[in-house]
Every structure is written in structure tokens, then in C-alpha cells.
Design a protein around this nucleic acid. Structure first.
Lengths: 228, 228
DNA sequence: CCGTATCCAATAAGATACTG
DNA sequence: CAGTATCTTATTGGATACGG
């Protein structure tokens, strides 16, 4: 039994570096740890509480989440804020620089969409779904689209708006849309990406708009698994 | 005390997945392991041998490199090819899909370039340097630029060509350029990104072209370390 | 309830020696 | 040169206990 373990404290300070001047390597030192980028992703559409993050990230354990949040905070990608009383709860927010990591999330998602091993039946967080829309959105198909789509995904609401071939989404205000979709993120993904019938969702408002909406996000062709 | 723990055998078979339908999470399962993306990056400009990869990636150990190459191969991102005799050596190549990961490398590099913690004095592989040019290239500054720049970086040579605001680079043929730069990748990075004098490089050929070339790759502003 | 801290088993990574 | 084998260390994840 070791009674002292003072020595090996290089964990937090001198991290595991790549010793590489390449920006890619440095980025991986910042957000390359397991779960790091997924935690950051969940903050892309606004602050989240600890337990919300736990729920959004199936399988992350409390201690790992604590550690990742602390690291991201130390690196300047996440800030913790305490809301003013009476709701004096703590929320984690991405910093402006943290938000700038969205193109990374998109590049990864777009690339992986071609993977033969991708399993779209797994659960999905609301933020993931909304961000995936931004990633897969096809401006060409949406040239003539103008409307606001609300999403009620359990306790969380989002409002997406498409206009002039641009896609935007923010949390909240789902009811303000021209149409409101209420369902689980997985069910919505099944319709948008899996071609499931829209009847599997609760559609309130301009149903025709919803039917057009769900066709704006084409998936790229899968990679031929035998190619090399 | 639990006397039975037969159950928890999910380790080897069910890899470490995120259990998340999001493409980003799936991408991280494919290339999110430590070193994976850096190995793939080194293959972006053509096949490399085992020992070359070891040299390109300071600090990777042989067993980890073996494992990463095997994983990347199993996932369809890398293929190993044996060159025909007499040079019957084995090289690792990125598959077409593996090459499609370049936007990920670029997004990471572009984002990390703003990091206050980025240390540009560390060593850098030739591939990293060449890819960083593609990442940081400013088409506006290069509107009137037309020329071919050769690089001799130790044993490896590269030829970059810029025309009509487009940047391309490939391995080999350095001598075919209008100007030839001979130096270490780090020294070249110091000139292009750190403003060091071009005299620190060996410049053969159209020196004026080289002087214009090194100004085509502006770095983004650093993040304010105090912002939140 | 909201996190944090601690303990422990299972892996992954790192260092080094070794083999064809 | 191109990897394997082996050993050590570090990180991860899960359970659980603890403080506000």
C-alpha cells in the first residue's frame, strides 16, 4: 500500500500533450478527451445544468462530467454561472470561443454520416438533433422555404427558422412557430433522416410546412464498406 | 459485498461507445481515440511507412501506432499496401473516405489557432505544415498570385501551387517549383506564422515569389484569455 | 435535489525489450 | 525495419458516500 501519492500530480497541470505545433494536435489537447466535445456540443444552444447534461449524455458518469466541465472551464471554453435568486441555480455555458467549435462538431457529423457503422436508432439529445439540422441542411432545397418550426422535445423547446436558404435554431419559443412538432428527438430523426412517416409525430399547425421541412436535410451516400 | 460480477463483460465486445445517434459521437468513436486523427492526418498527402509515421508523430509508441493503424484499417479509413518488388515494403494509405476527414483536421486547426495556449515552437511534421497552409490560406490575399512553391523538408518534398485563389499541395516534385524552400517545417512555420525573416530559410529560385507566398496565411486573432 | 469526492475494477496509453 | 510482447502508469466508468 502506498501511503503517499503526492508525486504523480501531473494529471491536471501537465496534461498529456502531443508535443506538436500543429493546430490540430493542440485542438485535440483542448477538446480531445473523451466526452469533452460532446459536453461542449450540449452547450451550443445555451446553458445547461449538471443534471441536464447527465441526461443528455447517456452513459457519462457524474465524476467524469464534473472533471470535463472543470477542464473545459479551465481552458476557457465553458463558464459556470449562477443565476440570480430566487432561481439561484448553477448553469454551465459555452464561452464565445467554445461556441466557435461548432464547425468542428459539424465537420465530424457530416463526415460520420457516411459511415457504414452509424446506428441512427440510438437515442439522441435535443441539441444533437437541432445541430444536425444545421449540419445537414441543404440551402438549395430550401431556396423557397420560409417558415418557423417549433419543437417540443420533452422538457426542452426549440425554434428553428428557415429563410432565404439559411437555417437558424435557438432554444425556447417553440410555440411561436408556424408549426409545432412534439415528439422525442429519436422519432423526429427517424422522420427526417430515416424516411419514417410524419404521422409518427404530433404535428400542430401548418402540417404542409412540416412535410416540406423534413425533406430539407439529405444524408450523404454511405461509404462502400469494401472500398479501399 | 457483491460476490458475482460476471455480468459486466461489455468491455471488449461492445467497445467504448457513446450510445448516441449523433453523427458527432459516432465520428468520435471512429477517430476519437488518442492519436487516431493525427495518424490519419499524416496520411493525407500520400502513403507513409510505419517508421515514417513514428518519426512524424513525436511521442507515439510503437504499440500504440500498431493499434491505431489496425483500428483505422478495420474501420475502413486506412489501407495497408505492399509495394511490388523489388521495393516490397509496406505502406499505409488513407482510403478515399479517410481523406474526406480533412475538413475535420482543418476545422480543428482553424479553431485551435485562436487558443492562447498554442505553442508554435514545438516541432511539426511536413504534412502538418502543408495542411496548415491549406487551412490558413487566404484566397483574397492570393487573388493575383500564380506560382509553384517547392519544399524540401529533410527527406520529404512537397510542391504547392497557387492559382486563381486556390491552394493545392502534393508530395514530391519540389524541384519543379518556381522557387524551392529548404528548411525544417518548424523554421518555415516560424517565417509564415511567426514573422521570422525569410533569410532563415534556404531560398532557391524566385525569391520575390517566396516573399509574397509567406504572407498568404494570416492567423486569426487570439482569444482573450479573460473572456467568458 | 445538485453536485463533489472517494474507492475500485477494467482499459488504454506509455516505455522498453524483443523477435523475424 | 516493422512490428510484438510485456510491464507500468494513467484514465475511465460505475458505485457509493458525502456536503450544501
Amino acid at each position: 500500500m502506498k501511503l503517499e501519492k503526492i508525486t504523480n500530480k501531473r494529471s491536471s497541470d501537465a496534461k498529456r500533450r502531443y508535443g506538436d505545433a500543429c493546430g490540430t494536435a493542440h485542438a485535440l489537447e483542448l477538446i480531445g478527451d473523451r466526452w469533452s466535445l460532446l459536453v461542449l456540443r450540449e452547450l451550443m444552444l445555451g446553458g445547461r445544468r449538471f443534471s441536464q447534461l447527465r441526461g443528455d449524455l447517456p452513459g457519462i458518469s457524474a465524476n467524469v462530467l464534473t472533471q470535463r466541465l472543470a477542464e473545459l472551464e479551465a481552458r476557457g471554453l465553458v463558464a459556470r454561472k449562477r443565476l440570480p435568486p430566487p432561481a439561484s441555480v448553477q448553469v454551465y455555458e459555452a464561452t464565445p470561443w467554445g461556441l466557435e467549435a461548432e464547425p468542428i462538431v459539424q465537420a465530424l457529423g457530416r463526415w460520420a454520416a457516411r459511415s457504414p457503422g452509424h446506428d441512427p436508432t440510438l437515442p439522441l439529445s435535443g441539441v444533437s438533433l437541432m445541430l444536425s439540422f444545421g449540419t445537414m441542411f441543404d440551402p438549395d432545397r430550401a431556396k423557397k422555404f420560409d417558415g418557423r418550426i417549433g419543437f417540443r422535445l420533452g422538457p426542452d423547446s426549440y425554434l428553428a427558422r428557415i429563410k432565404k436558404g439559411r437555417f437558424k435554431v435557438a432554444r425556447g419559443e417553440a410555440g411561436a412557430g408556424d408549426v409545432l412538432l412534439t415528439a422525442s428527438p429519436t422519432a423526429i430523426a427517424a422522420v427526417v433522416y430515416g424516411g419514417a412517416p410524419i404521422d409518427s409525430l404530433l404535428v400542430e399547425g401548418d402540417r404542409q410546412l412540416a412535410e416540406r421541412f423534413v425533406k430539407l436535410f439529405p444524408l450523404p451516400a454511405k461509404v462502400d464498406a469494401l472500398a479501399s
